[in-house]
Structures are given as structure tokens and as C-alpha cells.
Nucleic acid binder design. Structure first.
Ligand code: NAD
Ligand code: NAD
Lengths: 224, 224
DNA sequence: GCCGTTTTGTTCTCCCGTTCACAAACTCCT
DNA sequence: AGGAGTTTGTGAACGGGAGAACAAAACGGC
């Protein structure tokens, strides 16, 4: 509305934002295969979406394709990365270095996709002896200084559910404004702070619901 | 339409299905606190949703509340669990016992929420020496016999991306019809098979997008 | 230089999901 | 028993996203 869009501040629909990373990955994959140009049809197939949806999504970023030709893979990849903001690395802290925290710390996919784990924190002093993925596990009390030092704005919570709200509160207090939460709890945070949750049990329960349906109906599933 | 709903076969909107597990968890939490009755307002707050949405969601299951009073926590909890299909355990196999697979195998939240891990499979023979969470890590070739023996219909993929499609194909061939995929790939499966994906990097990239927006705008964020 | 072919960008329509708002229904108090 | 006060269940308005369909634009062949 206010039309004072300095560069590319059009607001992109949330559903589109959620798909841009998928396109980014598909483009990276195509680039690795040596493909330099692709049509919306090919890219859509690679990303698992409808080609009309893909084109509409990309149109929010600008006109980066060429009619009759398609998209330049490398150019489009860069434009999407720039729009998402992963052309340079984001520092991230992980809190709660238990089963899941270890896996996250060891995950190489973060680094390659624009994120750098700068610290691993845990409340349990016994954990502080450990070195995971080349990083010392440090005291949760070091949160403030680490966030200040590395200018961290993204935090990951992998603690038990009971501790998650406390951890979130501390994160917010130190200036973190984006949280990825693995604990099965609803976090309450002030306006201006984004929270996304990943909840395995919910995903499995959704599958279970459909599974129950399948076995219920006799064979009235397919129609093609 | 066809109105031949044997028991409770009304089709529940997908968005509602995705929230039922959240309500289930909120109700369990309330029950543990000793609450026996709750209003839609309380339950909605506990689940982090709008109360009107909650009531509409619940109305798809039936009329399980009492006007002027609210919902019986234990009764509603059971009704939702039954609708989702987690009143008895679902057997699950996990394929790919690396960093993430270990964390999943050790996760106690599955058992308590209606799922039972019956086998851990890995293609790497060196893994077969291991015992994780009380289960032997077995050869991927045992998939068929394990699925047949335990009547498994849900599989979890925690292998590297390159192997994921192969694993999915094998799963489908053995009769698995629901897959939870952690590998960053688009899986293609036949009709009748459900796939849900969990992708950490995508979640972080969505956060990064909004984070970039925040730092762009000066302070035009809050208005309350 | 022009025409047919290809593929993008966009418009239009439809559908799903969210939210408001209110009547119906139940409890409790007098 | 009746009325005031609560709270559910749902009809209706609204907004956003998905997909079909097409016009505009670029390329290649002649
Ligand atoms: N393991 C999985 O595969 C998995 C799957 C889905 C969800 N989860 C969820 O992720 C979270 C972590 O799971 P996990 O299996 O790693 O648990 P875990 O018990 O192995 O690890 C939790 C860690 O958090 C630390 N911790 C506890 N309180 C803390 C605090 N206040 N501040 C900082 N650190 C604190 C503990 O010392 C421990 O090291 C849980 O909420 C769990 O429900 C785990
Ligand atoms: N570790 C994390 O926190 C994390 C986070 C997000 C996504 N992921 C994704 O999850 C997957 C697993 O991650 P990880 O860190 O555990 O990797 P990992 O390399 O530690 O483990 C992968 C395991 O899969 C096994 N495997 C390989 N090919 C197989 C096959 N064809 N059949 C059966 N088993 C096979 C390997 O032997 C290995 O044990 C990857 O796709 C990764 O991108 C991991």
C-alpha cells in the first residue's frame, strides 16, 4: 500500500514464502546436474508442484524468466536466495543438546543452506564436558554474551517441553526474534517474534488418521 | 453427499485434521493438571488457536460439549484420540539409523502418543552391530518380513536424500501406505500412499525470510 | 523481415479455511 | 418454576490461495 518499496519489499504471500526454499533446492539440484536453463514445467516437476503455481510464485519476485525459453537456473537460484535472505550465513544457537540436539548439531545441511551454528547450550553441567560437531557445549547462562557477540537472531529449542517456554523467554530477552521449536508445547512470545514449530508426533498422527480411513473403506479409493 | 456414513465417516477438512493432535495434547496437559472440564475459550488458549476455530473443528467430530458448561476433558480427549486413530498403537519402522535416526529411535514421545517403533533398519552393515533404544539395528533387506510380521503401514525415512526415493519405493512395494520423510527430497509415490515431509532447512529459511524483513524496515513493526 | 512455436506472466474463477455473530441449549440462583 | 447468565454449535461473510486459461513476448526458421 504505502508503495515506498525501496527495492523488493512487496509482500509475498506466506504460502509462496514456504515454497521458495523448495524451488531453491530444486534449482540447486538441477545446477548440480549441469542444467543451465529450465522451463516452469520442468522446475515444477522437480519441486513437486503445479507449474501454474510455480509461475505465479515466481512472479511475486519479479520477471526473471524469458518467454519462449524458460529460466536461467543459476540466475533464478541467486534471485530466490537473495529474496529469502540466504546469500550470506545466519548465525544460529541451539539450546538443549540431548538426543535431538546432537543430531541437529551434526547436521551438515544447515551450513550448506545459509545457516551457521555458532553455539550449543545446555542447562545440565554434565553436558558441558562434551564437544559436539567441533563446538563446546556451553552453559545456558552464556546465552546473552553469545547472542551479543555473534549478533544471533535465530534460536533453536530442543529441550524437554517443560523447559521450552523458559528458554524462549530468555531468548526473547536477549534479542532473538526467530525461534524454531522442537518441543511439543505452544510457546507464547511477544509481537515481532516469529515462532515455527516442528512436531513429529503431530505428523505421525495425521498419517495415522488417513491410515485409519484407508483400512475402513473397502476399496473405494482409486477412480482413475 | 452419498450419506452412507457407517459410523463417523464425514470427511474432516485437512486443516482441522492437522489441529486435532494439538487439541489432544492440550487436553492431556489439562487432564494432568487435574482439570476435568474446560470451555472452548480455555482449551483454545491452551492450544494456541482462536476459540471459534476450535469449536468449528470439534463440531466436525460431533457434539461432545455441553452448552453453558463446556467440554469434559477426559471424554473429549478420548473422542479425538478415537477419531485420529491413536486409541491403540500403530507399528512404525525407521529406516536410516544415523544422527537423526538415533534421536528418533530414542524419542519416548512416540510410544506415549500412539506409536510403537518395531524395527530400525540401515543399509550399512557396520550399523547392524548396534542396539539402539533396546532394538537391534537390522538389515534393510529385512523390511519385507518385518512389515509382514507386524502389519506395519507407517514408515519413517531418515536416510540421506539420494537414498530416499529408493527406500520409499521399497516401502511402497512391501505395503507401507504412509511415509514420514526427513530427507530433503520430493518423493514420488503412487496414489493411495500418503507422504508427509519434515524439512528443517525449509523452516529455518522461512524464519530467515521474515528476519530479513524485520531488519529492513526501521521500526515500523508494532502498532499496539 | 515475417510467421509459427514455445513459454512466461497474469487474469479470472472457484474452493477452502478463518472469523464473526447469534440463536439454541444448558446451569444456577432466587 | 422462571429468568439471568454462560457457553456451544453453526450460518454467513470474508479473505487468500489453487488452478485453468489466455494474451504478451521472445526465439527460430525461412
Ligand atoms: N528425540 C527426538 O527424535 C524428538 C522428536 C520429536 C520431538 N522431540 C522433542 O525435542 C525435545 C528434545 O528431545 P530429546 O530427545 O533431545 O530430549 P533429551 O532429554 O535427550 O535432551 C534434552 C536436553 O535439554 C537439556 N535441558 C533441559 N532443560 C534445559 C534448560 N532449561 N535449558 C537448556 N537446556 C535444557 C537437557 O539437559 C538435555 O540435554 C523434546 O521436547 C522432545 O519432545 C524429540
Ligand atoms: N541430522 C539432522 O539433524 C537432520 C536434520 C534435518 C534433516 N536431516 C536429513 O535426515 C537424513 C538423515 O540425516 P542424518 O544426519 O541422520 O544422516 P546420517 O548420514 O548420519 O545417517 C544416514 C543413515 O542412513 C543410512 N543409509 C544410507 N542409505 C541407506 C539406504 N539405501 N537404506 C537404508 N539406510 C541407508 C546410512 O547408513 C546412515 O546410517 C538426511 O537426509 C538429512 O538431510 C537430518
Amino acid at each position: 500500500m504505502t508503495a515506498r518499496t525501496p527495492d523488493s519489499a512487496r509482500d509475498i504471500p506466506e504460502a509462496t514464502v514456504a515454497r521458495l526454499p523448495v524451488y531453491l533446492r530444486a534449482l540447486t539440484s538441477l545446477a548440480e546436474d549441469g542444467t543451465t536453463t529450465c522451463s516452469s514445467e520442468e522446475l515444477a516437476a522437480s519441486a513437486g508442484v503445479n507449474s501454474a503455481k510455480l509461475r505465479k510464485d515466481l512472479s511475486y519476485l519479479g520477471s526473471y524468466g524469458t518467454r519462449g525459453v524458460g529460466y536461467d537456473v543459476e540466475y533464478l537460484r541467486y534471485q530466490i536466495a537473495r529474496e529469502i535472505g540466504v546469500t550470506q550465513d545466519w548465525p544460529v544457537v541451539i539450546v538443549g543438546i540431548g538426543n535431538l540436539g546432537h543430531a541437529l548439531a551434526n547436521y551438515s545441511g544447515f551450513r550448506s543452506r545459509g545457516f551457521r551454528v555458532v553455539a550449543l547450550l545446555d542447562a545440565d553441567p554434565r553436558r558441558h564436558e562434551e564437544v559436539v560437531a567441533g563446538l563446546d557445549v556451553r552453559s545456558f547462562d552464556d546465552l546473552e554474551s553469545i547472542v551479543a557477540e555473534h549478533d544471533v537472531s535465530i534460536g533453536v529449542i530442543a529441550t524437554p517441553a517443560v523447559a521450552a517456554q523458559d528458554v524462549a523467554d530468555r531468548m526473547v530477552a536477549t534479542g532473538i526474534t526467530s525461534i524454531l521449536n522442537f518441543a511439543p508445547t505452544v510457546l507464547s512470545v511477544p509481537d515481532g517474534v516469529d515462532v515455527r514449530k516442528v512436531d513429529l508426533s503431530i505428523e505421525l498422527q495425521i498419517l495415522a488418521y488417513h491410515e485409519q480411513r484407508k483400512s475402513g473403506l473397502p476399496t473405494a479409493e482409486v477412480l482413475s
